[in-house]
Structures are given as structure tokens and as C-alpha cells.
Design a protein around this nucleic acid. Sequence first.
DNA 1: CAGTATCCTGTTAGATACTG
DNA 2: CAGTATCTAACAGGATACTG
Lengths: 141, 141
Amino acid sequence: MQEAYYVAKSIRKTKTVSTESTKKRVFHNSDDCPIRNVVAQIGDKWSVLILFALVEGADRFNSLKSRVVGISQRMLTQTLRDLEREGYVNRTVYPEVPVKVEYELTSMGRDIVKPLYQLVSWAETHHGEIKRSRKAYDERN
Amino acid sequence: MQEAYYVAKSIRKTKTVSTESTKKRVFHNSDDCPIRNVVAQIGDKWSVLILFALVEGADRFNSLKSRVVGISQRMLTQTLRDLEREGYVNRTVYPEVPVKVEYELTSMGRDIVKPLYQLVSWAETHHGEIKRSRKAYDERN
DNA sequence: CAGTATCCTGTTAGATACTG
DNA sequence: CAGTATCTAACAGGATACTG
């Protein structure tokens, strides 16, 4: 396992005596921790679905709205703005009448989709196992 | 890109006429969509950090509490329960006095950490780029 | 030690109405 | 068409006090 700056060696300055002093601490500092700062961002309710929709190519606002089933206009706007701000999505306005706005993945957007696919692929494979685990847990609790 | 059941071909039954009828729809159905159902679960504030802390081996409640910096007792309990329910974590009570409770990754827990590392590794690599993108966005808006 | 139980606040996201 | 603006309900999560 690689050692990252948000995972620092435990500086045993606390008074608690432990038999295991080799374990690392895991920080969540919002500014400097990629986990909270990057993963948590795309871990919201709609980001991944929008990114996956855009993998198939540039698309317009209302087309996305109908393809990302269940999303509200408000959340589509807001999540697209967030994704644009992060650098995953480009927004292009075509000054026609009526106006046309296209969203497409940046190179970084196409890039982050790869590890996301790994994760989603894992999730698909283990989805049944997870559902069984939940069911078993709920039955014994 | 693989075609999953949460990504279905667009059934063009809406009245809107589109020049691109080949794009897929992306569902978010909570019960059947692994994205919402698995990814969103571990996308909360503490799950990934706890999983990463447990990669180093089984650990006890209060040790975890000090290692996962900033987490409250309430959220540690709650997130551990969720992770246990999903099947990522095993909880073992040792009936000593005082009681000792150990948490450790299940085989599935050790397994999901792999794609998570891929994602976090990506995040580390691109963290600077993302921060610059945010700054640029904020300056022009 | 390893939690529960309460209370409380900020955020998230849906619904609805309106606009250049 | 592609959004804003506003209101509100639900939820996530922190602080604190208490317990087997």
C-alpha cells in the first residue's frame, strides 16, 4: 500500500498505551486530502451518472435531462456546474435561437471515467453479494 | 464500454425529436443500480477512510477513532455498522472486562479496496490539476 | 471500552414558478 | 432551450450527556 500525505505515521504522543503502534492515521483535511476532496465530490448523487452519460459524446442540457432518468433541472444544472468547475466537463454555448448548450468531457473527464468504471464494474459484480449481506444483517438485527 | 442494466437503450417514446437517437439512458433506480447502491454508499464522508484504516489489519473502536482523524463517536459507530451491513467489515466482540471489540475487513472488504485505491491514486495524481481548475473557474465567474 | 440517546445545525435535493 | 430563484422537506453529521 502506498503511503500518501493524508496517511501519516502515527505520532504516538497520546497517552493511551497501545500494543500496536505501527498503524497509520488517516486524515480527512478537506483542503489537502484527495479522498474527501476528489472522491467525495464525485460521490454525490448525480455526478457519476452524468459523467457516464457524457462518455458517449457531447450532449445538450435537455437531452441529458431526459437521459439521466430522475434528475431535476436544478440538480442537473448544479452538478454540471460542479463538474465544469472541477475540470471534468466543458460547456459550450451556441448563440443560436433558441440557444443551444453542449456539454462534453474534457480529457481529464474522460480520464477519471476509467477508474470509475473499475469501481462500478466491481459494484456490478458484487451487487448480489452485497444485497444478500444486507438482508442477512437486517434479519439478525 | 460495457452495457449494464442501469444503462438501457433509449426507447424513443418521448415526443421530443432528436437528431441523436443512439445515446443511452442512465438510470438511478435505488434498488437495482449499482452506481447509486454501491458507489454512493461508500461515497459518504467516512467510509473510504475507515476501509483504508482497516487495510492495515483488524483494529478496535477507540483505536480507529483516534486514527481516523476528526471522526465523531457517533459517525464511527454508524459508518462501521453500515460497512458491516454491506459485508465489508466483520465485528468481533471479546467478552473481556472491559469489553474489546475488533473490526476487520472481510474478503469482500479487502476486495473493494483495490478499485478504491485506483480511484484515490488517480485523485492524488490529478489533485493539483483539479485545484487549479477550480481556481480558474472561480476567477472567471 | 464501546458504545446509545438526544438535540441541533448545515447541507442536499425535490417541487414549483418564472425568464432571456 | 437552458436555465434562475425561491421555498421546503429530508437527511447527514457534530456536540454533548449518559451507560452496560
